[in-house]
Write a protein that binds this DNA or RNA. Structure first.
Lengths: 235, 235
DNA sequence: CATACTTAGTTGTACAGTCCAACTATATTA
DNA sequence: TAATATAGTTGGACTGTACAACTAAGTATG
């Protein structure tokens, strides 16, 4: 019973990892970084989630640490960032008992192409996995992140944070469909999206191979909107 | 950029805290412990969430650590236990940069009366707070736990884990109402509960000041069931 | 012992939102 | 000018909730 803590109580290694999602090339993608090959590094050369040790001198708190790591790898300053959970055990890092605080971030496509770090690269999410074998327990964390994303997409407006500043309703629906990997009903989608009061029409229209499409933008900044019902699969 | 970690990288203090809920005396209550008054202890005598340092020698992982702390304070071995999130910053603990992994647990009333630790005591949750001023940032963690509980109750079967092994539908509804702090519609509640396929009738009936009430029990072990819709407030 | 009361559980109607398919409208392309 | 593709609308079928009225059965009261 460590109810009499000492400051010398052995401390786990503490890291923060960020699962960064974006829609690129009509697919859900996640940003991975390649582990350094320096001596003493675990999983040299493996792909891993962006992250690393908490800097107790520089990081004010966990979220600031996650935002810093995100900015280091992508240049993006303030996307949607949500805490995912934490993973800690004696065995997940060969260097000893370690705990990571995992976050997940959503980037709009236009922001995802920017100032990528040299060791970073986008990978398509296939099912709930990614092609390369990931370092540490990062496959498990990614799995949880995809599940959380998919589950929240069912009843919130989260995918709106994957969109550019202005977008059409069909574009938004396509984003939902990519994340859910499932077709959605056009008119029900429209009704619910407008009822959710999250997006508002802007004056301009987008011209395409069809009639002019109304452009929308996000109304609020950060709060995902909850729907009354989940999306039921058509058919 | 701590991409070249050293094992000597300064580590935050790492703790696990557990928000333990139960329905007692027809109210939502939470278990708190009184901080020791020993020298060097922060917040001496204050009430706090049960928790403490991770024992990297004894704890296999974070959840095992949370379960251990829960058992220490309540004697209960395997109730519903879910990760809530983590809180870490330079300022939340006067001893230095610290991060806590917070869990929340649901105890059935009959288990909540058991082998309480000497320093532990139940407090009613009023609104999203508790009467005494809590140590550290535990008021914020409690707030998050109550919100998570209330929000999940809207669309899952979580409150079933606050029930004794066998219970009637009206008793289950009362538990929902206590957690939500709102009256629910009898027939809609019944329909949804039965449709959720989470509980099953047992042969026996409970006699009361009314007609015999059908007893039910949980069907599955740990998975909360999601409802298609939230409970809409009557009126 | 009869009656009133209380609560468990059912029934039926109104209503809201989704599913689905068919329809209209308009820009692009041939 | 006509065919085509996509944006967006409309209306009927269906599902599940809200709400209130109802039935049933045990308890309390005189």
């Amino acid at each position: 019973m460590p109810e009499k803590p000492e400051l010398d109580f052995p401390r786990p290694l503490t890291t923060v990892d960020v699962v960064i999602f974006a829609i690129r090339s009509d697919a859900l993608q996640v940003l991975l970084v390649q582990r350094p090959r320096a001596e003493g590094e675990p999983f040299p050369g493996s792909w891993a989630l962006p992250g690393g040790f908490v800097d107790i001198a520089g990081d004010r708190d966990l979220e600031a640490c996650a935002a810093r790591k995100l900015k280091d790898k992508t240049g993006v300053v303030s996307p949607y960032l949500e805490q995912l959970g934490s993973w800690g055990s004696a065995t997940r890092d060969p260097r000893g008992w370690s705990a990571t605080h995992a976050y997940f971030a959503l980037l709009p496509e236009h922001a995802a192409g920017g100032a990528l770090a040299a060791d970073a690269q986008w990978f398509a999410v296939e099912g709930e996995k990614v092609r390369p074998k990931l370092a540490f327990d990062h496959a498990e964390i990614l799995h949880a992140a995809v599940q959380r994303l998919r589950s929240k997409v069912e009843y919130t407006s989260l995918p709106a944070y994957l969109m550019p500043p202005e977008f059409t309703l069909p574009e938004l629906q396509r984003t939902y469909e990519i994340v859910l990997d499932r077709a959605l009903e056009k008119s029900a989608f429209r009704t619910r999206m407008l009822a959710a009061d999250l997006i508002e029409p802007v004056a301009r229209m987008r011209k395409g191979p069809n009639r002019p499409a109304q452009l929308y933008r996000l109304k609020r900044a950060k709060a995902p909107v909850f729907f009354a019902r989940t999306f039921n699969p058509p058919g």
